[in-house]
Simulated scan of single mutants.
Amino acid sequence: MASCRPALGGEAVRLTLDRIGHAFLGRAVFEDLSLCLAEGEVVALVGPSGCGKTTVLQIASGLIDPLRGRVQRHYRRQAIVFQEPRLLPWMTARDNIAYGLAVAGVPLGRRRESAERRAAEVGLHRRDLDKYPAELSGGMRQRAAVARALAIDPEMIYFDEPFTAVDVGLRRVLQDLVIGASAREKFSALFVTHDLSEAVRLAHRIVVLSGRQEGLVAERVLDGAPGSRDDGAVFETVQDWAKDPAFADLFDGGREAA
């Protein structure tokens, strides 16, 4: 299924995947996959474990090359938030958040100011910025990872199931941080998740990757802006999709897969 229709149709296209295909050890993961993201659009990519969601993200972000097809990136700065925080253990939280700015040659004073501002936005206390990753809780490390992504003022952010390892309460907080930052700063985002409820909360549009090497098998544009859907609306949407054959790989007996 080709999906090259950004939900925010009036905005410029930031990313285009044009009929990409990939394989591991001779086994096809997906073929002829096409996808576009508009400026300011958050697209959630969902699918069962092992279907190639992370591979799509890695190709889109340039971490790996597709075997077939073409990727067009119409932006200058990107950031990636991984499942693990991937903080540098020999750097303080402040320096980890400012790392991308340091690589770009931003002066020290501006780096510190930006790191402290972004840390405050994600709920990190100033007293924690002089701590090393080993001294931070798992949730604090993931907050720092999000702050590091935001610090470079990216036009595109790739999220690879970044909140799966945190508890339910913190996951909700981190989701709200992403929703707020996206609305405020208008970056585009490709958000990989296997959690449909998370996808419905966060995204303008959802695309579904098949678990049987069929590429993208469904696309749904969501009503309203991310963050505007209450828990009842999210629950009802997910329950409606439980009856939709396009989402069958994500459900087991009508219940959302864990």
Rank of each mutant, 00 (worst) to 15 (best):
50 G>C: 12
245 P>Y: 11
24 F>H: 14
237 T>V: 10
122 V>E: 02
41 E>V: 05
152 I>H: 01
142 Q>A: 06
46 V>N: 00
48 P>C: 07
31 E>C: 07
77 R>F: 08
141 R>Q: 12
43 V>S: 01
184 R>F: 11
20 I>C: 04
229 R>Y: 03
83 Q>E: 11
54 T>E: 06
32 D>E: 11
162 P>C: 11
178 V>A: 05
183 A>P: 02
176 D>P: 02
91 M>K: 12
190 L>M: 09
41 E>Q: 06
223 D>V: 10
74 H>I: 03
136 L>V: 08
70 R>W: 08
59 I>F: 06
36 C>T: 13
203 A>K: 03
50 G>Q: 10
244 D>F: 12
151 A>L: 07
71 V>M: 05
73 R>D: 06
58 Q>P: 03
122 V>I: 13
24 F>S: 10
197 S>V: 09
255 R>K: 15
187 F>T: 00
33 L>W: 00
216 L>I: 10
37 L>S: 03
58 Q>C: 11
105 G>L: 06
209 L>S: 03
211 G>N: 06
249 D>C: 09
75 Y>E: 05
115 A>L: 05
167 D>W: 13
136 L>P: 00
222 L>W: 00
130 D>K: 14
140 M>F: 06
66 P>W: 01
86 R>N: 15
80 I>F: 11
80 I>S: 03
124 L>N: 01
76 R>D: 14
96 N>K: 06
188 S>E: 04
149 A>S: 10
156 M>W: 03
25 L>M: 15
209 L>Y: 00
75 Y>H: 09
140 M>R: 02
154 P>H: 07
3 S>W: 08
67 L>H: 14
211 G>Y: 04
195 D>C: 08
16 T>S: 15
73 R>H: 09
17 L>H: 01
152 I>F: 06
56 V>P: 00
132 Y>N: 07
135 E>A: 14
56 V>Y: 00
161 E>P: 03
149 A>K: 02
249 D>K: 03
3 S>V: 14
56 V>L: 04
116 E>I: 10
140 M>L: 11
27 R>H: 12
69 G>T: 08
174 L>Q: 02
102 A>G: 10
125 H>K: 15
180 G>H: 11
210 S>N: 08
244 D>T: 12
191 F>V: 02
4 C>F: 09
80 I>Y: 08
23 A>N: 10
156 M>H: 04
226 P>T: 06
121 E>W: 09
139 G>I: 02
137 S>H: 08
116 E>M: 12
81 V>L: 05
213 Q>A: 15
258 A>C: 12
187 F>E: 00
202 L>R: 01
237 T>L: 13
92 T>Q: 04
6 P>R: 02
105 G>A: 11
233 A>I: 07
220 R>P: 00
41 E>H: 07
171 R>C: 06
1 M>F: 10
54 T>S: 13
224 G>W: 06
228 S>V: 08
196 L>G: 03
231 D>Q: 13
73 R>T: 08
258 A>H: 13
181 A>N: 07
185 E>N: 15
237 T>F: 11
133 P>H: 07
142 Q>R: 08
212 R>C: 10
175 Q>M: 09
166 V>Y: 05
238 V>W: 01
23 A>I: 05
110 R>A: 15
179 I>M: 10
159 F>D: 03
1 M>H: 09
